[in-house]
Design a protein around this nucleic acid. Structure first.
Lengths: 354, 354
DNA sequence: GCTTGGCACTCGACCACAGGGAGTGCTAAA
DNA sequence: TTTAGCACTCCCTGTGGTCGAGTGCCAAGC
């Protein structure tokens, strides 16, 4: 029950045409477009077969055919030829995702670029690598009555800050002293190891350690523990989705936008696709979330220093220009990974299968 | 050509009804609703007068009346009785806008709360007070080859960070030393004064100062100067606007959402209303921006430590529940101001004219 | 002089209907 | 196996008719 070449060509042409125009494709148009020198009647026969296989359907009698989700699936799996993106856009991406910027900006730029270039919504999950990321610098700043601002800098230059409630008032000198202790002791140590070391310190040294150090340790611990769930999502260009008539229903849009602000489901989806290497595509229902019913999500994990730390991608209607989107997502993931890595130059452009 | 009491009552009832229902109000309904014991015919006469004055209009013959922008203006200026918000919501606001959180969170919470409680889009301009805000703490962290991360903490506990390109490599000791110098010398000094002092130092001490200090000064200066234009906007709950049928046109929505991401025009509008004290209302065209044609913007400046530092507000369709929105915006501005002030407890709830 | 009932009128919303067009499925011939 | 032909289906659009809500105006009433 597999497709012969002719049926493949016709399916491919149909989907390409439908992606471009957004309207059901009739047999006549298809016959002309496919370049196969077939009559429309023959095409109709093939279409009937494709419909039996569940790859295309017609919204109503006499309305031409549109691809089903399974049709899209076959298309992206076997028919589609990924289009390399043009140099202009590549340069633009490279420029925005240069290692010079700080991580937060890089994430935002990546999301923005994805949305701009694809004309869809761009999503980037913030990198998750506390465990393997090295500690670089900590700082305690007195705010007012017992409130202490803890500033934590990780190896990649990301700055996290958080206010904690101390158990007593500390003098600036005490705070400087404890910060120095941490910076001297733990600089370069991985975050996971720092946490484990702190746990040890606090239980073994309970009496013989100066009280201030104890406090510092517990403060650092508190600050670190709150960094456990910083999984966040940067979404850009949502309004691009308003241009697609198939999502034009305001209620659908509303649900979609709410999902963007809720973030929870999207995070789970991205998390899921973090485990597999390479570009992953969820078409319609495949994502498992109702809100994304008429949408496709194209994702790719990105890595920093050789380790996968997050996922990025785009969301758009199932009718999206996969050929281009796939390579854009792929390249963006690699550029972002490269920019986030400490030794710039890695993750450049050695092409790899998707 | 001013309104007599009866006309006022009718206009008020009409607008209230229209705000609640969203549909043109007919003379019959109005006569019943207003509690004036008038016949519909009389109401029709009054309506004709109001239409002559440009306060109401009908979308077409035989469709009841809806308020014009001028009608809304009269309504909010003279007819409307501000509704104090219920205790439940007040508590919710107070809880979210407590001084315990760090400034960035406070801003985001405020925006989110505004959108939640009003069911509209909430906007908060980030506080602008570098000049009068005191310097508290600075820190230099080496990243890699000449890239130095500068962390700047201001009096309110806000953490700004930025990567700068140094002119040569510095040792960690040098960086610690210079940070200490700054923290000792300038702690508590206002940002404006710090800048001025730095300018002086760098030109007078050019030879006799250690080179490292020179570098530190110029680094600090660079970091400070980039903090000049941090004017930013936090928008929440945009998707609430999709629930209003009068904004249901997808193209209009698209423009509106684009304005939210572009931020420029909105910032200008908020900036403009920063100068006047109290709640300010822009109805439709009054804002001067086409995108906001069918929208109203309700804003209020908020102050920290007795000084106005920013503006917040909501955006919704002209048909919004002004009575409640006004007091919500007012209170939120005061709560945020209080939470941002160093001496908590100020800016509580002494009522003041709007 | 204001208010009111009455009446003709207007206009959108809803429905039914017909014609045109695009496209299909099926059949029979090449 | 492909193709031409044909009947059929269904959407889209435009037309016309009815209904109801609401208006404007006028003449009568307080």
């Amino acid at each position: 029950m597999s497709l012969d070449t002719r049926a493949e060509i016709l399916l491919k042409t149909l989907i390409e045409r439908y992606i471009a125009e957004g309207q059901p494709v009739g047999s006549r148009t298809l016959a002309r477009q496919a370049g196969l020198d077939l009559s429309s009647a023959t095409v109709r026969n093939v279409m009937a077969d494709l419909e039996d296989m569940g790859l295309v359907c017609s919204p109503h009698t006499s309305a031409g055919r549109i691809p089903t989700e399974r049709g899209y699936r076959v298309f992206v799996d076997t028919l589609l030829k990924v289009k390399p993106l043009n140099l202009n856009e590549l340069h633009k991406l490279e420029q925005e995702l240069h290692a010079d910027h700080d991580p937060q900006h890089l994430i935002e730029n990546a999301s923005h670029m994805l949305s701009e270039v694809c004309k869809l919504a761009g999503i980037v999950m913030t990198p998750r690598r506390e465990e393997q990321l090295a500690f670089r610098h900590i700082d305690f700043v007195n705010l007012s009555n017992r409130r202490v601002l803890v500033i934590l800098v990780t190896q990649d230059g990301q700055v996290h800050n958080r206010i904690i409630q101390a158990d007593r008032e500390y003098s600036p000198a005490e705070l400087v002293q404890s910060a120095n202790y941490f910076n001297a002791t733990y600089s370069g140590v991985s975050m996971g190891d720092v946490k484990r070391a702190l746990l040890k310190e606090i239980q073994q040294a309970s009496d013989d350690m100066q009280r201030i150090m104890q406090a510092a340790v517990s403060m650092a611990r508190e600050a670190l523990s709150s960094e456990e769930q910083p999984d966040d999502l940067v979404v850009s260009g949502e309004s691009n989705l308003m241009d697609f008539p198939e999502l034009g229903d305001v209620r659908k849009l509303r649900k979609l936008f709410d999902a963007f602000t809720a973030k929870r489901d999207l995070l789970r989806l991205l998390d899921q696709s973090m485990r597999t290497g390479g570009v992953k595509i969820f078409i319609g229902q495949e994502s498992g979330y109702d809100v994304l019913a008429d949408c496709s999500v194209v994702t790719a994990p990105y890595s920093a220093d050789g380790r996968i730390v997050g996922t990025l991608g785009v969301i758009g209607p199932t009718r999206m220009a996969y050929e281009q989107v796939i390579s854009i997502v792929d390249i963006t993931a690699r550029l972002l990974g490269g920019a986030l890595s400490s030794n710039e130059g890695s993750g450049r452009l050695e092409s790899s299968g998707r």
